[in-house]
Amino acid sequence: MLDSDVQIALFAAFGGIAVIAALAAVLTRYLLRSIVAFGAFLTAIAGQFYILAADFVALIQIFVYVGGVVVLILFALMLSAVGQKHPLAVSEHRGLGAVVAYAVGGWLVWAAFGQDLPKAGQVPGETVAFLGRAFLDQQLVAFEVIGIILLAAVVAALVIVRGERL
């Protein structure tokens, strides 16, 4: 049967892939490998979303991130032609970075074990219908604000990239 044990195991498997891919993306010194690992990371996270009963969000993750942001990053890589054959320089703050990262990670994991969380509620089957209603009712402000942010983003990015005044 598809009980919660299977669910947890699959979630952990995706999580493991995500962690490894994220490590690879951060640690590799070749930019292209970093981007490829980032793509794998995003896909694993999409799998986790799907398991957490957020199928819509999972596919949006693939659509926007893998089909959009990764393409955008690749475009930027090609237009700036950096780090293509030769490895990238790494900053001298690696020790400090590692200490801070260990501290943050340790604290967050400790916090995760420290909480007494309620059991997950019953998830509605048709997530999309509920999401649509949420966007039109309680979260209307978020919906319209995203519109404004998108508008601002396209104007700002065009101004920056074209190097001209508004």
């Binding site: 669910q7 699959l10 799907y50 398991i51 199928d55």
Partner: peptide
């Protein structure tokens, strides 16, 4: 209900 989604993932 989330069981069905889990089945989707495996499929």
């Amino acid at each position: 209900m989330s069981e069905e989604l889990l089945a989707d993932v495996f499929f």
